[in-house]
Amino acid sequence: MEGKEKKIKITPIEHGTVIDHIKKGQGMKVLRILDLVDREIDSIVSMAMNVNSSMGKKDIVKVEGKELKNEEFDKISLISPNATVNIIRDYEVIKKHRVGLPDFAKGIVRCKNSNCITNQSEPVETEFEVTGEDPVKLRCTYCDREMTGEEISENVI
């Protein structure tokens, strides 16, 4: 069933990346976290929201003509730990990846502590140690403040 639905709603791509099983409502954030919204890229980027699947509703993101790299999809895990990344060549899935949490998240999320030095105009990327997986927990390596859940998705850069 799931496969059939996908074929209807998400047209297959010849070459590129399909990010599947994104937590419902987080698709836009995935686009943003991967910098696919503002960046000048040749690829066609499309998104399906609220797609039915065996595990409930989900979002799907499709990037044509571009294979995402490991460090890119590690970022996705911060907001949607169960997402999968499919690399497509000639309409075939050649690589299927569950996203994995990185040990450190650099420059992806802003610190929630307004008095943190990284929220001033200093020439540094934010840096968080991933201290929890389910739910994802991040500790700012500058001010030690911990962030989780909505705090993380609200602060995606």
Binding site: N115, I117, E122, V124, C140, Y142, C143
Partner: peptide
């Protein structure tokens, strides 16, 4: 000595 948290960590870099 600085009023913002993380200032010394930043300075050390």
């Amino acid at each position: 000595r600085h009023p913002q948290e993380g200032a010394a960590q930043l300075a050390s870099k």
